[in-house]
Amino acid sequence: MLLLYLPILVVVVFSFNANTTRTATMTFTGFSLQWYKNLFDPISGFGVHLVTSLEVAFWSVLFSCVMGTIGAVGLLHRKKQKSLSGRSLERFINFGEQAAMLPIMIPELIMGIALLALFSFLRLPMGKITLVIAHTSFCIPYILITVKSRLSTLDPSIEEAARDLGASPIRAFLTVTLPLAAPAVLSGCLLAFAMSMDDFVISFFVNGAETTTLPLKVYSSVKVGVTPQVNALCTVMLGAAFLLVAMGQLLSSARGKEKKI
């Protein structure tokens, strides 16, 4: 258990190191905030990469949330189709569901290479668009899982009642199903957002020269050696991650209490 936190602790401790010599990452000489000062420096800082990461995560979560949520609705309560077109639609959607779940089942490396190959075949220049397409693809399964499991616990008669009272399918979805599924959609989105911000392997293959996301920047900085500024960056990222987890925990425990009342 302690071992789980040992490497994290090392990173945090060394981010406050006062030592500025070449051995800055090896010997701790005193407390200082020097590595934090130029963290967001426009030239050597990490601000640009953070913005890139946030942008990619925003669009990917948006696309995957819309497709995943209405996809989960469409997959639920499938009725056996009789007509030929209906059957082929059913078959296509079954296949689509299987394909949509693949990105979290196979090694990320394969997804990265497959997308890189596809993008170069389509002559799509590597950049934000390719990153968003890739991230959307691996975010969909997370949304699909959470929303589908929530929808399957809902009583289908509620929606049927709305339909019987004259609501169109779209209105019934917007006013009845969606509000009931909203907590699941939100937690799916949070998970997808975290996965997108955190992704390194797939982004590694489909990023462009101008679109280095934060994890990619961390990788290129630590690949060559140990750089003290990265310690500061990592500590900030760690803090943000812990804050998010704590917030999620608070939210869910608050919701749990509501339910009890």
Binding site: A72, K79, Q81, A114, L118, T136
Partner: peptide, 25 residues
């Protein structure tokens, strides 16, 4: 029957996306 089919159409965007960028890739 129409309702069942209309409902499945909702899963179409996701299916097309997955087939294009996962299965085809």
């Amino acid at each position: 029957r129409e309702q069942g089919r209309g409902r499945m159409l909702a899963a179409l965007p996701m299916s097309i996306w997955a087939v294009l960028f996962v299965a085809l890739a």
